[in-house]
Design a protein around this nucleic acid. Structure first.
Lengths: 120, 120
DNA sequence: ATTGACACTATCCTTACGGTTAGTACTGGA
DNA sequence: TCCAGTACTAACCGTAAGGATAGTGTCAAT
């Protein structure tokens, strides 16, 4: 378990949640996987600006935290599929809520809203 | 607007939400304020381990982002009250959801759960 | 023979963020 | 007289996380 999570456990469950899904790109990754299993390359193209190295790290953390399942197919060229565990799936409502809230915030600030992941 | 929020706006609304509430202590602060207006010192004692300087910064960011209202009473010794704006209030359901999810995660990991903020 | 796809890994750099310590101005109470 | 409480601010530090760049091994296609 990562240090930040251990610390969060001493404060409150909310901080635990933030420590697990608060990392850059993590919720975007989860949102993409909510639509179905994806290979590494597909995920990278879907997410956008992320680099290989960062995407790999975030996926490994999500895997270690039990949110993402990683399946390696022993073939050449390599094939690796990523999907959500039930725990990851259980974030569906929260993802939707955060998406909606982010849009509301942008609206109240009079800012051009970010593209909604759910509309895509 | 902070850089991280600007960047997030180019990606998706979910990242916007994370950039606004993902900071350390921020959701804990919001949770305390969901129960009512608090003075600076009360908030510091409620939150726990946070230092003055960090708490001040988080509050200022929350204020700049339109989630928290700061009211200064021109008196000596100084008195400053913090409360949630309607936008901040609108996080109530999300806070509850994240609290519940954090507990569920701890349960599935077989970890001693963090104290629930909602039980207090 | 070279290139590209695939899913990474290694190395390094930079910055932002959280954190520590100390200090401010004023007052009321011991 | 001294100290504590109030709500901060200033200056500084250390680390962790994100990001950039380059390299790995195998195979298919050009």
């Amino acid at each position: 378990m990562r240090d930040s999570t251990v610390q969060a456990l001493e404060v409150c469950s909310i901080e635990v949640t933030v420590s697990l899904i608060g990392g850059c790109w993590k919720l975007t990754i989860i949102q993409k996987l909510l639509e179905g299993t994806l290979r590494f390359g597909e995920l990278r193209r879907e997410v956008g600006y992320v680099t290989d190295r960062v995407l790999t790290r975030q996926l490994r953390e999500l895997e270690a935290d039990g949110l993402v399942h990683r399946e390696v197919f022993p073939q050449v060229p390599p094939k690796v599929e990523y999907s959500l565990t039930p725990l990851g799936e259980s974030l569906r409502d929260m993802v939707a809520m955060m998406d909606a809230w982010g849009q509301r915030w942008a609206a109240e600030q009079g800012v051009e809203p970010a593209p909604s992941v759910l509309a895509s």
